[in-house]
Design a protein around this nucleic acid. Structure first.
Lengths: 144, 144
DNA sequence: GCGAATCCGACCAGATCGGTCGGGAATTGT
DNA sequence: ACAATTCCCGACCGATCTGGTCGGATTCGC
């Protein structure tokens, strides 16, 4: 029921990239140090993020990673979905086997409703939102 | 990111109990058959539910399980929290190690906000809501 | 005391988690 | 051409978690 460390690492890396000047690629090593993420582990995470189109990469000297889309067009939902292998459904089991007891449908409905809620929220928050929210002077805009 | 089968089983059992006449205890065997749950597995789930005060049990002939509180006073949040061992925090890792990179706080905030949202929802839905929602003629009351 | 039922600890196979390792392939600088 | 740099990628690995099962101890009603 907790977010996986893998997804958390992926989020960190993406947030760091979103907060950096977008033209200069950042290497795994630097990303690893800034985010406190084991470098070789981060490597495979970035790989799936790239395959999913959320990152672009460049090899050789001066290479590294950049965002594949604008920061405002990447939601944290996309990121965790990619990294955690697509499955992000609270009601997975309940929906799969259609066991029929009194209250079964009510249970399924209640769970999938909550599931839809969290997914909607996850897909609504973008990297842009996060870096904006992080700078204290932007807080006023959010009314926090 | 998916709800555990254990929690799902716990929910099923509780819903079944909530939908049954509350005075007569129901045995593991019957609960197991109605819910399609392996009996011995269900046994340990019911045990922690009882230790948590959500169930009362009676031993010997004519024994079994009954709800420990009124169905309207048991939320599905309580159930999954007990069965899945208490931890139900989306932002667990992010909060634990306070790694400091640009955007760290924004990320923590965003995650814990969503976490709070799903928890609030989980704690708001009661067993009563679920069994009510299950009977089709009650749908109108919900505007579904 | 007998049978029905819960209680409870031990065990277990397989999957997942959180990484590590080592090398290959592409790109750039000299 | 060659070396340095950087990503690419498959294999592996120990620890923990998942989803159970088993066997027996305990308690209750009769």
């Amino acid at each position: 029921m907790t977010i996986s460390r893998k997804a958390e690492y992926g989020l960190r890396a993406m947030v760091i990239l979103a907060a950096s000047p977008p033209e200069k690629p950042m290497q795994i090593q630097e990303l690893s140090e800034l985010g406190g993420i084991p470098a070789k582990f981060l490597e495979q995470i970035l790989l799936v993020l790239r395959r999913g189109g959320l990152l672009r990469s460049k090899r050789g000297v001066g290479g590294g990673y950049q965002l594949g889309k604008a920061a405002r067009e990447i939601s944290i939902g996309e990121i965790v979905a990619l990294v955690d292998g697509g499955l992000c459904a609270l009601a997975a089991h309940a929906a799969a086997d259609d066991q029929e007891f009194t209250g079964a449908r009510g249970l399924r409905d209640a769970l999938s409703e909550i599931d839809a809620l969290v997914n909607a929220r996850l897909n609504a928050v973008t990297l842009d939102d996060i870096v904006l929210r992080d700078s204290p002077d932007a807080m006023l805009a959010f009314g926090i």
